[in-house]
Design a binder for these strands. Structure first.
Length: 1012
RNA sequence: GCGGGGGUUGCCUAGCCUGGUCAAAGGCGCGAGGCUUAGAACCUCGUCCCAUAGGGGUUCGUGGGUUCAAAUCCCACCCCCCGCACCA
């Protein structure tokens, strides 16, 4: 009968709500506090979000069934700038965004107007996400829900920041950001066109001094000379060490340059654009004159450090928007420079005078020869730039492959190159590796004021508004000082004491703790809490979400507290136990009892027992979470566990807008039902791996569970009895038990054990695998055995029902809705969500029966192999079981191997030594016979060893405990099955009657089989 | 570059810490048979190569090594993915 998944979902969702079973309050039971990173409500949830929350919910439900008082709450993170940016775009009628909202997110067009207010966007998606969580069956205590713009929460964050400041962990300073000059605000990846992350590079500005005397242009008036006097040309470079190879400077002849006083001291020539960019870097730039690049062509400058003179030459590739608009030319090592020089020379030789410069300029150009000053494989073959250009077959300045040639040469020289061994060229830097030389030259020149530095964007970036971005240095920025040594030590201490699942990710935490530096913790705009001591700043979103788990306790009481009268002393008492509750009660206008109650509740639930999130939060949120807890709370309230999971793929592909494979969660729920989605998300991979979500998988799970559901109905119908169906119920019918009944119950104990172990380590994939597939397989074997004997359905039900009972319980954390339904069909009391997790009954484990059943399976496997190879249709199958002496020998070898002696020669030696060995191993049986058996049958000894070694260790010890298995009895019990299966007569006997030559084939647990 | 994770039989993924259970679990896909008016679904079997008796051969990124025995331990190398910030 097909299942109406959505009706079942609705029914149990309502029932849970009504019974309020997920609301958790302090009790005498042990508590377990699970939290997940709360969502940022700027879009609806999709399948990918579901993994982390589902995992946490499965964890919560499991712990609840294990008897813990589980608190699993949820909040909503409104803090941040993306929502603000969205609302701005809506206000500007951004077509793309509006279409996304309406067509993809399903927002009604009439709502769009309200989205000009960022809070409305957050509220809308908040509601949407919450509904999705309820539909997914997450066992959340919704009384504790809050948002990060609730006034009381703001108070809480204010308190947090004051605590941090008191501890000296907040500092102020400057730091660079990507900046849009038009919007007057920082830009990060999602604020830029094409979502480009603004990347910074630091140029070294090498100060070339203009030789004013070289200005011998016709109108040599004194004004002009004055302007040029002492002028510095800062050439921007990333390769300071190549200063020794400079042959000239490049200026763009058509670009506008500025002569300006920088920081009130030096007079610099830089492009107009650079002059502006320098001001964002907080340089004081006062422009005195404008000048075209071409006016300076031909003048000489002095190279700092080496005091050589080189000319200024024209190059159109110089970009005034990049660096300073002044480039130093190192033709031996820079393919661009080399090619530009070749081109210039060629045009002069051809008599093409496109520039109209003075004759001396041309003469200067013709004189220039590259100066090779880095030695590497390339320099062995000539001028390195020339070598690489030839290899690429480049012949023009505008060839795009020049970029590749440049990268190749740069990286080769960086890793493998050394400066020239000739001190006449490179002074006392000779033979240094390029990497070291670069740093040293830079530092030396900075020290002697021969150079400066300048931050710039590595690649041009545009703001969403279209304006080109710049690097800006923000002054007075507030930081959380994560570089504090003592703080790091405590964070490590906390991490060491924590459980990290999976363990593999621990090293990453260790690294991040060490690597973290000062972190800007406030912004000028966005939703959130104001910085308590400087209201122009808003606390940034990754800083107001680090200890909020504690707030879930307070949130339950939020309605009873007036945020206006709550002050820091309230939080001091609730969270730290500091202060006098009576006076706090008075000043905060709260009853003392209430304050005490909240404090007690906090102490009951804290610390966090398990924090869940996706692995993307490891290098930020999760590590901040550790840091801030150790800063604020005493050791006994530090978090106990972090669980990290990988992401979700759709049909093996990353989810992305461009692939159009992002499935909204609620849509998926409507189409496939929550239970199947939950299981699909968790079954395809263990924690850290990316999980592959496929519809094929989902459908197959759903159908499997439908079958299980039908089996429940079928077998409950077969027995009239009601009440709870458990081990006791089964035991009461002991007289009915046959071998397969005992077997299935024994198997069940193992499965419970293994599944419980898997759940304890949150190996949910393994757990689901047991529940969905392994249990199915066992059930099928059982049915096959029982039916072949013609046992009645209600006979079978006696064994099947307790098995189903355990299966439904264990499956319920994964598929809660359908399991409630099956639970009620099976006659379970109350909700399965609140039922007990099954525990094993050791008395029901029967190794002899298990070995017996696997003997039957092994025989069937062998029969099938033989049939397959011989392609015969047997009319009779005869099974010959090993005779007594083989068992003696087998068990002897088994014991020897179980002692850890596994080498053939050693085992043989032990056997042959017989009783005289005195080791105790061979003293129980008739020693002399044993020696004879072993000596006469070395090949049998070898075979037995192989067979024992290829048996699972647990089975080896249980076989040793069992001793001689009555194989004839076991196999006789299976004759009905065998005869039915192979449709022929089956006979079982001991091998006595067998011809001597064939006797070698039968071994214990491996009977000889003959088909005729 | 720094740090982390990973390379397994058509695909996805277990196994590796604690060597023998491993030709290697499970799922998906594919093939055959059963069921069915037919199909879907379901059930059974098969799915590296060879084999008319339960066997043999070659496999777990590549190349070495340790061991009676290596997917698993050691060494070297190749390749792929993720993070490197002020942003949720």
């Amino acid at each position: 009968m097909p299942i109406d998944w959505s009706a079942i979902q609705r029914r149990w969702m309502d029932a849970w709500d009504e019974a309020r079973i997920f609301e958790s309050d302090p009790s005498t039971k042990d508590k377990y506090f699970i939290t997940v990173a709360y969502p940022y409500p700027n879009s609806p949830q999709h399948i990918g979000h579901g993994r982390t929350y589902t995992l946490a919910d499965v964890h919560a439900r499991y712990m609840r069934m294990k008897g813990y008082n589980v608190l699993f709450p949820m909040g909503f993170h409104y803090t941040g700038t993306p929502i603000l940016a969205m609302s701005r775009r809506i206000a500007e009628h951004d077509k793309e965004l509006v279409e996304t909202f309406v067509n993809i997110y399903g927002v009604k067009p009439e709502y769009i107007e309200y989205f000009k207010d960022p809070v409305n966007i957050a509220r809308y998606f908040h509601a949407e996400i919450k509904e999705g969580m309820r539909e997914m069956g997450y066992s959340i205590d919704w009384r504790r829900e809050f948002t990060t713009i609730d006034p009381l929460y703001n108070r809480f964050i204010t308190w947090q920041f004051k605590r941090l400041k008191d501890k000296g962990l907040i500092s102020q300073g400057s730091h660079p950001v990507g900046w849009c000059p038009r919007d007057q605000s920082p830009v990060s990846q999602h604020d830029t066109l094409g979502d480009v992350e603004p990347e910074f590079i630091e140029y070294v500005l090498i100060k070339f001094m203009l030789d004013a005397s070289s200005n011998n242009k016709s109108n040599n008036n004194s004004d002009d000379a004055k302007i040029m006097e002492g002028l510095i040309l800062p050439a921007a470079t990333l390769r300071a060490e190549t200063v020794f190879g400079v042959t000239n400077l490049w200026l763009n002849p058509d670009a506008e340059y500025a002569i300006a006083v920088v920081d009130g001291k030096e007079r610099w020539l830089v492009s107009m654009d650079a002059a502006e960019r320098l001001t964002y870097l907080n340089r004081d730039v006062r422009i005195e004159h404008n000048i075209k690049g071409r006016e300076l062509i031909g003048l000489r400058t002095r190279v700092p450090l080496i005091n050589r003179y080189v000319p200024i030459l024209p190059a159109v590739f110089v970009d005034p928007k990049n660096g300073t608009g002044i480039v130093m030319s190192v033709p031996a090592h820079a393919p661009y420079d080399y090619q530009a020089l070749i081109d210039l020379k060629a045009s002069i030789n051809a008599g093409i005078d496109t520039h109209g410069y003075a004759r001396v300029v041309y003469e200067e150009i013709m004189k220039i020869e590259p100066i090779v000053m880095i030695e590497s494989e390339y320099s062995n073959a000539g001028v390195p730039a020339s070598v690489v250009i030839k290899r690429y077959g480049i012949s023009r300045q505008d060839d795009p492959r020049l970029e590749d040639a440049t990268n190749e040469l740069y990286s080769h020289e960086f890793y493998k190159g050394r400066l020239s061994s000739d001190p006449r060229i490179v002074m006392d830097y000779s033979s240094m590796g390029v990497k070291d030389a670069r740093e040293k030259v830079r530092d030396d020149m900075l020290k002697r004021n021969l150079a400066d530095t300048m931050l710039d964007l590595a690649k041009p970036v545009r703001c969403r508004c279209g304006t080109p971005c710049v690097v800006k240095i923000l002054e007075d920025q507030w930081f959380i000082n994560y570089s504090d040594k003592e703080w790091k030590r405590l964070a490590h201490q906390c991490l060491d004491s924590m459980q990290i699942l999976p363990e593999e990710i621990r090293d990453e935490f260790v690294y991040v703790i060490d690597w973290l530096r000062e972190r800007a913790c406030a912004r000028r705009s966005g939703l959130g809490t104001k910085l308590p001591w400087d209201e122009n700043w808003i606390i940034e979103s990754l800083s107001d979400s680090v200890i909020y788990m504690a707030y879930y306790i307070i949130a339950k009481y939020a309605k009873m507290l007036n945020p206006d009268s709550i002050d820091d002393r309230f939080f001091d008492y609730i969270l730290l136990g500091v202060g006098d509750p009576s006076s706090i009660a008075e000043s905060c206008k709260v009853s003392k009892d209430l304050i005490e109650q909240i404090r007690e509740e906090f102490l009951y639930y804290y610390p966090v027992d398990s924090r869940h999130s996706g692995r993307d939060l490891v290098p930020n949120h999760l590590t901040f979470f550790i840091f801030n807890h150790v800063a604020i709370f005493p050791k006994e309230l530090w978090p106990r566990q972090i669980v990290v999971n990988g992401s979700v793929l759709m049909d093996g592909k990353k989810m992305s807008k461009s692939l159009g494979n992002i499935i909204p969660l609620r849509k998926a729920i409507r189409e496939y039902g929550s239970d199947a989605i939950r299981a699909s998300l968790l079954i395809s991979a263990e924690l850290l791996q990316d999980a592959d979500f496929t519809l094929d998988m989902l459908k197959s799970i759903r159908e499997k569970v439908e079958r299980l559901y039908n089996i429940c109905i079928e077998y409950v119908g077969k027995v009239k009895s009601s009440g709870s169906i458990d081990h006791q119920w089964y035991n009461d019918r002991a007289h009915k038990r046959e071998q397969e009944d005992i077997w299935l119950m024994s198997r069940l104990q193992h499965i419970i054990k293994e599944t419980t172990d898997a759940m304890d380590r949150l190996r949910v994939r393994e757990a689901l695998n047991n529940l969905l597939y392994i249990m199915d397989r066992d059930m099928q074997w059982y049915m096959k055995r029982a039916r072949s004997k013609g046992r009645s359905d209600d006979d079978i039900a006696y064994t099947i029902l307790p098995f189903l009972d355990a299966r439904v319980r264990m499956l319920s954390p994964f598929m809660p809705f359908i399991c409630e339904e099956m639970w009620s069909i099976l006659g379970g009391k109350g909700f399965v969500a609140m039922a007990e997790w099954p525990t094993i009954a050791p008395s029901m484990i029967d190794y002899t029966v298990e070995e017996g059943e696997s003997l039957i399976m092994g025989v069937m496997e062998d029969v099938e192999k033989i049939i397959k190879v011989t392609t015969m249709k047997p009319s009779k199958i005869t099974i010959y079981v090993a005779e007594g002496w083989k068992w003696e020998l087998y068990l002897r070898i088994l014991r020897i191997i179980n002692e850890g002696i596994t080498k053939y020669s050693d085992v043989m030696r032990m056997l042959v030594r017989g009783t005289s060995s005195g080791s105790g191993l061979g003293s129980d049986a008739d020693g002399s016979d044993m020696v004879k058996y072993a000596k006469d049958n070395p090949d049998i000894v070898r075979k037995m060893m192989e067979s024992i070694l290829s048996t699972p260790p647990e089975s080896r010890s249980s076989r040793a405990g069992i001793g001689v298995l009555d194989e004839v009895r076991v196999l006789n019990d299976a004759i009905p099955l065998l005869e039915k299966e192979y449709n022929c007569k089956v006979e079982v006997m001991v091998e006595d009657s067998l011809a001597k030559t064939k006797k070698k084939v039968a071994l214990p647990y491996k009977p000889a089989i003959y088909l005729t």
